[in-house]
Design a protein around this nucleic acid. Sequence first.
DNA 1: GTTAGGG
DNA 2: CCCTAAC
Length: 633
Amino acid sequence: MEVDTLQDAQETKNGGNDFKENGSLDPVVYQLVRVEGDGTLVPPTEDEVLQIEQFLDDKVDLPSIDDVGNVEDFFTNDCMLLKEPDFEEGYSELETNGEIHTQQFDADLEVDRLKPSVDSLDIPSKCTVDHDHKPDKLNTEQGDNNIVHQDNASTETPKSTVLNDSCSAEKEKTDACSRSVNNSSTGPSVSGVTSSVPDFSILRGEVCLDNLTIRELQEAFRATFGRETTVKDKLWLKRRITMGLTNSCDVQSSGCVVKDYKIVCKDAKHELPTIEGIPKAEVEATSLVRYQVLGPGNERDTPSCSYYRSEDQQRSSNRLKGVSTDNDESEGTLQDEQGAAKRLRKPTKRYIEELSDTETLGSTGKLSSPGKMAAHGEVLLRQRVTPLQEVDSLSITYPTRKDTFGGFSVHVPYASRMRRGRPRRNFISFLDDDPPVECPEVQMAVETMSGKDGEHVNHKNTEKKGGHIETAEKKGGHIETADNKEIHSIEADDICRSDAKTKTKRGFKRKHHRAWTLSEVLKLVDGVAQFGPGKWSEIRRLSFASYSYRTSVDLKDKWRNLIRASQTQLSPENDGVCPRKSNPSIIPVPPAILLRVKELAELQSQAGNLAAAIKFSGQSSKVAQGRGSSGFL
DNA sequence: GTTAGGG
DNA sequence: CCCTAAC
């Protein structure tokens, strides 16, 4: 079912393409963004972009992934959030040429199927309907600092990212166009296009949103976005309307007065032009990237997006368990729930930078130690509970850094990148079990490092057939730099550790066990052959770039086990006897590999002896360095 | 931060 | 796979 969903997503995307081809000759460029629960858009991290791309690319292969459960987990967990009108976030793809083509990859579609008459009514390509299920109170109390970030950095082209439902507001003007899209869409059509015209008059004149009833707000919403909503959360409605009218995410949920389609905030923080009558280019110009830290009195948000990641997960897991979560469900429940299980910490600048550093480390191919991971996890957790967050969030100017994704250059607050660390277990586990093919660079490194290149490659290909664990390995054939792989893999690891924690001694569960596959073993053997034993970090970096859930320690441990196995299994007494024969699910390491391991082990021990002898005799250790005999200390 | 080795 | 001493 999830796979269907994904394919639907793909179809939808195709539909969008069709539309674009019909509508203009401009190539369709999708921009992935994340819609936060309060409507702010967060640029995707590189790994998100890549992974989504991968999903689309690999959708056909999904059913054959060995661990389908992970796929399901991914969809249900990360995206079930979207199934309800109060979901927290989603992915939207925005066409960079300004045409709104949001796409939510899964749950949104499911919303369409399940509740065709709900929110995303006339939204041609599943324009993300991000309902803020979080009561604003939560935002306030938790310091849900959404740094409002809109894409601006791409100054050279008019394709600055149009964000959010503010885009939808614009869409209002191109509604006819949109609807034709809807009609021509080949995807699961979003039925239920509202036929009646929104009552635009509701926004005419001077109207204080605070004074409107929910019904009126809904109407105003419809007038603003061209679609209906069933959301009854006044604050949410007000904020969304405001956002739509101001084309800005930087809005307040109260105190706003609409004056002839213009938003006049009571605190006079700014009077933003409406999008009415503003050329598209200008509208887009107003979406220029700017990550703003909202001033005091503003209820939003801390940059610590990861906070909600955890919450998302909890919520989604709740839903998986069938726990109903209503729009109005008190966040207290959530907090209690979470507070009981997790500790929080107030988001400090230091914390943000810390995480950012972690990412940097990740990009350099370094893994944080488990201890460090643990520290981060704790940080994450504590943040959730601390009620003082907003104090910080109100006054601190968060640093931004320039970053690029999807061809866009944007200023990303550290906070948004922090989201890398958000728990996305399912997403990750899916990835982990489907490691993308190595980038050419890595592949080359692997292939050139062994004198038996051909053999190595052949091994890889043949073993794919045999080892079911390997079936998914070669599938993720999308472009990805080694660094990116490192990054998301680091994240994977991070998530693995932080997310999998139930409550062990340090609050962290052990890393998810991942059986070593034959190809991994081969890589390891080849790596040892090339770099020598003990060069685990090097081997990891060069040979395991696409398996970065393997740490250097893992490599070391595995090598140790391989040596043991080679010594026992290849010994005359046990000849031909598979020690763990009883368990058919365990794929034995082929004797050929064990033989090679044994050879290497002997070689290394010889080298070690030689080195020791040389050292002992006071000679130069030149020889010892020759073959990676790092091990005489 | 990495490696080695015990658990 | 975890932990930690040693480097």
